[in-house]
């Protein structure tokens, strides 16, 4: 009934081949049932409700970036570039002048590191690594009209360019501005974003950026364990960290977690996000869809009949 989800890596998923990730899971199954039942047309509120219980995947992985450890060496950028065979950058990876302006992930870079002034210890800049946060309840996946995104049981959110027609609603919906688009490609543009090295994870490895970080600032592990580790660090070194794990609750929680020495708002992290998954915001609307579909014809038919009746009598 359901097409198996293709190995959905970015680009052509070279790295992901090993895993052969068939992301068919409970949610896909529910969606499949809904579509098969013709409920697609109705907007399927049941499907939306099925979205927010992730208790079935206790082993999903995450990443913990400790911003107080990062020294801005850009090893992660280099490792990511190599692991995903992305195009060579304009400036070499040990070039520090790139920090003069804020960068973002692009069609040729899954991750970038930006530099910020340190308000706590001036002169000791803070570096922030930016990439897809692999949400627990990804907005991009909920927004995609062709289900090009899959939340894998391992944690990564993967994109499949084979069904994407390029509406870019995922980019509108992503609260973290993570997906980039290949605007320069005339005929085969695609969304580009971090895959959390899904293929490596499936093969028992760790994401390239994490393995490359000389400072151990990016820790890969089960999300649950990482939350404990992060809480532990905050508890042990209350002066070093602000008392928040960014990503624990933001937009329903993300696989990628962050610890920082200064408030996250100072580092351009969105601080105005709801704690519940963003897809919840459309739930009310989608629930009203079947009502309109059933009530409108009845009411309008009634109006029509009443007028016909009046005209015939008059």
């Amino acid at each position: 009934m359901e097409k198996p989800v293709k190995d959905a890596g970015n680009g052509s998923g070279r790295d992901e081949r090993t895993g052969g990730g068939k992301g068919v899971n409970r949610r896909d199954f529910l969606r499949g049932v809904a579509v098969a039942g013709g409920a697609a047309f109705l907007g399927t509120p049941t499907d939306v409700q099925a979205l927010h219980d992730l208790s079935g995947w206790p082993d999903r992985m995450g990443m913990l970036t400790d911003l107080t450890e990062c020294v801005g060496c850009r090893s992660c950028e280099a490792a990511c570039n190599a692991a995903n065979r992305l195009p060579a950058p304009n400036a070499p990876f040990d070039e520090k002048s790139v920090f003069e302006r804020k960068r973002r992930p692009t069609a040729s870079a899954y991750t970038v590191v930006n530099r910020y002034e340190n308000t706590k210890t001036p002169g000791n800049p803070i570096y922030r690594k930016v990439q897809c946060n692999h949400c627990e309840e990804p907005s991009c996946a909920s927004a995609c009209p062709v289900r090009a995104y899959t939340k894998t049981p391992e944690g990564p959110v993967l994109y499949n360019q084979d069904v994407c027609f390029g509406c870019r609603y995922c980019m509108v919906a992503c609260p973290f501005y993570a997906p980039a688009y290949d605007y320069d490609s005339a005929l085969e543009p695609k969304v580009v974003k971090c895959t959390m090295c899904h293929g490596r994870i499936k093969a028992g490895g760790i994401p390239a950026c994490s393995g490359a970080c000389p400072m151990g600032a990016i820790t890969f592990g089960k999300r649950g364990t990482l939350l404990k580790v992060a809480r532990d660090r905050i508890r042990k070194f209350p002066d070093r960290y602000v008392d928040q794990i960014y990503g624990e609750y933001e937009a329903g929680g993300t696989s990628w977690l962050y610890l920082s020495g200064v408030p996250f708002g100072q580092l351009d992290y969105p601080t105005n996000l709801p704690r519940k998954p963003i897809v919840e915001n459309t739930k009310g609307f989608l629930s009203a869809v079947p009502l309109v579909l059933t009530l409108w014809p009845a009411l309008l038919g009634l109006c029509y009949a009443a007028n016909r009746n009046k005209e015939e009598k008059g």
Binding site: R31, T44, D47, S142, A143, V146, A148, G166, R168, P189
Partner: peptide, 27 residues
């Protein structure tokens, strides 16, 4: 505007994303 306009029928025939409001709009 869309990246691959020849796939515009995909939401209707190839891959369904019923959680998406845009899926509804497309249909």
């Amino acid at each position: 505007d869309i990246g691959r306009p020849w796939r515009i029928y995909y939401p209707m025939a190839v891959s369904f994303g019923p959680t998406s409001v845009l899926f509804l709009v497309a249909w």
